[in-house]
Design a protein around this nucleic acid. Sequence first.
DNA 1: GAGTTTGAAACT
DNA 2: CAGTTTCAAACTC
Length: 788
Amino acid sequence: MDVVSPELNSLLPDEIMDTEAIAMEEDLPAEHLAPPPPQSEAEPAQVPMETEVPEIVSLCPASTSMQMTSTSTNAQCGTSTGTQLLLASSGFMAVTTTTPAKTTSPALTQSLPKISSVTLPANHQLIINKVASSPAGDGKPPGAAVLKPEGQKLLVAGLSKTGQPIMLALPHSWNKPATTQGTGDGKAQATQIKMVTAAGKPVIAVSSASQLMGSSTTLQAQQLKTLQITKKPPVSTAGPMITKLIITKALNSKASASVSPVVTGRVLTQSTPVTPPRTISIGEAISTVTQNASGNSKVAISPLKSPSKLTVVSVASQSPNSPQKSVTLPLNVALGQQILTVQQSAATSPAKAGTSQSTAQTAKPMQTVTVGSMGTSQFKTIIPLTTPPNVQQIQVPGSRFHYVRLVTATTGSGTAQTGASINTNPSIQPAKSVMMNAAVRMSVPIVSAQTVKQVVPKPLTSAAQVVTTSQTPQRLIMPATHLPQIQPNLTNLPPGTVLTPAHGSGNMGYAVLPAPYVTQIAQPTFVTLTSNSTFSTATPIQTQARLSLNGLSTSEANSRPRKPCNCTRSQCLKLYCDCFANGEFCNNCNCVNCFNNLDHESERLKAIKACLDRNPVAFKPKIGKGKQGESDRRHSKGCNCKKSGCLKNYCECYEAKIMCSSICKCMGCKNFEESPERKTLMHLADAAEVRVQQQTAAKTKLSSQISDLLTRTTPALTSGGGKLPYTFVTKEVAEATCDCLLEQAEQAELANQPQAVAERLMLEEFGRCLRRIISFAGKAKTDCPINC
DNA sequence: GAGTTTGAAACT
DNA sequence: CAGTTTCAAACTC
């Protein structure tokens, strides 16, 4: 597991941090979710302030420096007006520097002795290829860019516009995948660091790749790590500062069968007393793909009822004809808002996240865009599918989010190595891999968008598996070309929905798979879906999803089960049904003729579409979050109550425990702040709730005390006057005792006695009960001296 | 638990 | 957009 050094944030200058916008982001408009158009050098000026192109530092592993050079060139040239730094560590020494001298800090230049060449193109891009066998930057001054031989720690410096050194301490586990897969056995490894600075909002992406040779066949492993760091510009340092760090690692191994583990990263949040809180999100993605490049993409919308979180994961392959000639596909998993912990697995190790694809002819470029709001509960990630090969999309126009860019490293030519590679590792089951051609099987990981996730390796029995602990459900939307119109309404889909673009470029539709998939499926962690380009409903859907209900873990879901619906005529396919309205499958409901389940997915899809047609925000929560706290929560549409005075649960405002607002059209509303009726109701409700809680707690406590007392009393009785009948304390006796005690409590409460008096009465009653119990027990002993 | 009330959703 | 119907939850008895 990769761990980002805690001092990472402190090492980063303020210039590359910008999280205020993220923190403030709440509800991203739908247009923000649209795949960003290809960027051009002239576009950054059009980007809204909150969506300024961040600096990006990416380490892209590549088998050769030439590949890296092509990667960087193809990917980001012209996409940013900022500074781009590429550090490549490989067996090749070619160095291409495209950054003006002014952007290269002295500290960085000091680390260049082991770099063969540096070129400074006009596009502010610096590419440094480091000798693979070069020792670590021992003795280098602070701030120097260091690529240690083992690659366990990477320091990137001199990237700040102001000249302030930027240092990144990468965890040792960065190269762990390569090691575990045997990629580090003297084979060439390449690491590429790429930094793009634009508009003062930096995004740092780090990726690395390694190449390995198999015993019988050529093994090529590709690692991709993307480190994104955003930091609030110094101008706005007055507000809370949050640093988001996202590291995505992708590992592609051509030697293995079409097993594509996708590993998600984690998001860490740190706050120091000196500086405002910083949030670091780290994502990792590992993919092991066969020679055939294929693509699939996944869109994960956060699980919470609130659609404010949107995670879009795109997995696309590179065309064999792409300049990079990459045959491996980077897989990435959009991370949730906070933490996704990913453990890399070897090609034969259990996959963690399951998105794999292996079709060759229809390979498509991969593009990843992560839009995140770290300061709030919203996190959105979009990974467009229609971007050209090697395009490293890093920005969504109009969005204030910062993006995670996955840099696909090439591992060599696209020659197929299917058979041999698969045969070399029989433990891998290529049959379960994702095939995007005629039929595509996709494993959609259920990822959490809010909480720390621990990805646990699981036995590799299929393409990939993801184990996550999610507090928020996610819904799945699978490619469905017959429902393309859903696409523009990503934000309006049921919260937690995962969208998976259809196979094929450009024209993609979606199938909607609500998160309750999770609730219908027993054990597995994530959903594996099989579909083809037409996404026929008859296509068998294989689901493996971890039990999750409303974004809660299993235990949480059990503790707070969703209220079952009782629909009888709507088939649970209309918004009358709360389950459907919440984007959930019916589970343990009392509904009749329910179609809100996996067995009627096509009908459900149509119903969802119909709802969206009627109301594009049908699946959005009606109660919007107030940006300044609970007091600002209000109904999005307002209620229309006429007879209830908005003081009954008929009223949606009252039900949500919020006041009616000016947008309500209610008549005779009494649900306002100064309303005496409302205050009375609320007081009574609170009192009733408190009483219920107290009674429950008292009963539990008494039961516990009685049980404990009886446990301790028995030996005393035994040692004293002889053993009493062991059956003298029965369940009925205990319950009767509790009832007596509760009666005392109630009487004391009715008499408005203080709590101390009530407790005393209860204790006295308990003493009487106990004496009676002992008396009866002794009598029983006398009556039955032998058997008892 | 059956029946009534209520207001949102759906329909026209 | 307004009026009506349908629907399921909330509520009452």
